[in-house]
Design a protein around this nucleic acid. Sequence first.
DNA 1: TCTGGGGTCCTAGGACCC
DNA 2: TCTGGGGTCCTAGGACCC
Length: 380
Amino acid sequence: MTRYILHGDGDNFFASCLIAKYPSLRGKPLVVGAERGMVTALSIEAKAIGLARGMPIFEVRARFPEAVILSGDYKLFAQVSRRMHSLIEQTTDAIEKYSIDESFADITEAIEKRRSSPEIIGKEIKERTFIQLGIPISFGIAPTKTLAKLVSTSSKPNGFRVAMTDKELSPILSEVPIEKVWGIGRRTAIKLRARGILTALELRDAPVEILAHFASPIIDIQKELRGTIVHPINKEGALQQSMISSLSFPATTDRTFIHKEFIRHIEHVCARLRKHEAVGRTFTIHIKNSAQELRSETCVLPQHANTPGTYIDHFERLFTRLIKKGERVRTTGICISDIIPQSAANTSLFDHRDVRENEIYATLDQLHKRGLEVKTGTGI
DNA sequence: TCTGGGGTCCTAGGACCC
DNA sequence: TCTGGGGTCCTAGGACCC
């Protein structure tokens, strides 16, 4: 049975949030990203004068003195994001928060229950979010997530569009270059183009023989473009599969500094694990050097854990293997995966030190919750 | 000890997304 | 064009077991 899938996507989300909070910014060429030294978001006016994402901030200052340059306010963005999500949730609980400024929702039941239409229900959501949040969000309604994303994008800026039939969808798909289709990146686009597939419409209508040369994700995308759901709505609730912390700095060969950065990453991710009452087991550390090469080392812990001491024990071995003498390092990062709920971990296997460490960190987390700043060292 | 086949975990990296 | 931080999923070789 055909479903009505809604996709909501904030327009220039970071810039729009800041404009909603500081109305005096409205109409100005606003650039967000001062804290990273790089443009991460732009207002419409900033795009109009030729600014683009990824541009270094020093270049913006030099070439566009009229631009207003701000740092991102990630607490504000997260807050607006949560509200956007909960406003859609008033219509259906079959909702997936896909990213900070995007949500998918299945509004089929809402339409049936109220004997209504996708146009009416969708418009309601659109108006509700615009009035409550004061930021433009574009919405698209189509039979699958892949199609809904293309439809919402085609409706920008501040748009709303329903496209359920071939007749409605084909003209939209014919305007979409192949690399703009969700899941098709630069590499795959090159291969598809080599076989004469240039648009979303051409991918939808491509014969099986041609797609046989490609891996299954492409076949899935084609199904979605044809209106068959391959990627269902993922409701909230599941734990993340991995947690990452990484940070860049001016390239250095200072091993002590690099080491300290890693320890901070470990403490950071462990704190997040504990916040989610989760534990992880697969531990990867990575660096990027001045030649932009990315290298990593991985190990699997004997048991799941969420306190720094356990990770630091294994970290020393990985660190020695990873860092070459005299290498100029500009990014360090760690990733903890194989994440499961703490309750599902076999705590009876914890050794005594783990138990002790867990108690200590539980106390620290409690203090932290009460707003007391607690500085931890490098684990126990 | 080698020969063979099959399964699973570990590890490193790639491609893609926002 | 790889700027930057946080994610997902897939692949392929090697280790190790039966």
